[in-house]
Amino acid sequence: MSPEKILKVENLVVTFPAGAGKKVHAVSDVSFELAKGETLGLVGESGCGKSTTGRAIMQLIRPAQGSVNFEGSDLTRVKGKELRRIRQGMQIIFQDPISSLNPRRRLKDIIAEPLDIWSKLESEERYDRVREMCDQVGLDFESVKDRRPHEFSGGQCQRISIARALMLSPKLLICDEPVSALDVSVQAQILNLLRVLKSKYDLSMIFIAHDLAVVKNISTSVAVMYLGRICETADSDTFYTNPAHPYTKALLESVPEPDPSLIGSEGKMRLSGELPSVIDPPSGCKFRTRCPYSQDICAIQEPELVEISAGHKVACHFPISR
């Protein structure tokens, strides 16, 4: 019944040293699964650990505990050559398209680099592959092949990053805020491009973002993170129609609404303050310091992530119900 899982993350913990023998738990006890062909939107504010989760899956940061199962092998247990071989199947796109490209290299070499490392193709074939990939991402190869990153706009640089990531035909693509540095019009182009490439190359995606409207457009399921933990996860439809965690509700109501006729007259839920420090997190429920519904129990006991309906899990003592 359940579709094949491409990625299974269990009890992932990532810590960083914080000086004086202390540790920061950037990601604590995060578990989720990603089925083949699905897109998981990972949402949260800056500092909630969503990018760290993405990087820990790639093993760019080694998790302190937990396992990352990708196509049957636990990445936390492999290293060196073996890890690099498996990692061909998973690629990542970063937020800042310009700084993630080497400014001194030409476009054709940037895109061909994965091939040079892994396939050692004849120059003719290598050239064809690069040209084909440029076509796929909407770059005119002949006119841009000798340019360097500074000659491209942000949107074009993001296309280059995508082309580079897809060169080795990965199964899993992790997109770490791929559109948050872009203009709305360019953002729409890139989102459409990702959608087309996803079905064309049969990709599964983890899409990290802070804008819930963008995530809705591209994801099949969503997980919300707060201070290193997942506080709500569900498939897209359930998530957007029945958000149960107060934090999710606040996030949804912070999205600027472009059509004034849809802006309700009732006051919107606004979060006051900012994310508490991860070095010294609040006791009990991490969100209680900013939560309008918090009560005594929230300070004492940390809520577990429990399933409230099929596939819909929430970590809250007082979930919002409709």
Partner: peptide, 23 residues
């Protein structure tokens, strides 16, 4: 075109956005 290219919360998920092509 600018208005239509914005992803909206009340729009159905997984439909292509009406992007403005070119620059």
């Amino acid at each position: 075109a600018l208005f239509e290219s914005i992803p909206k919360l009340n729009a159905p998920s997984n439909v292509p956005l009406r992007a403005i092509e070119g620059r």
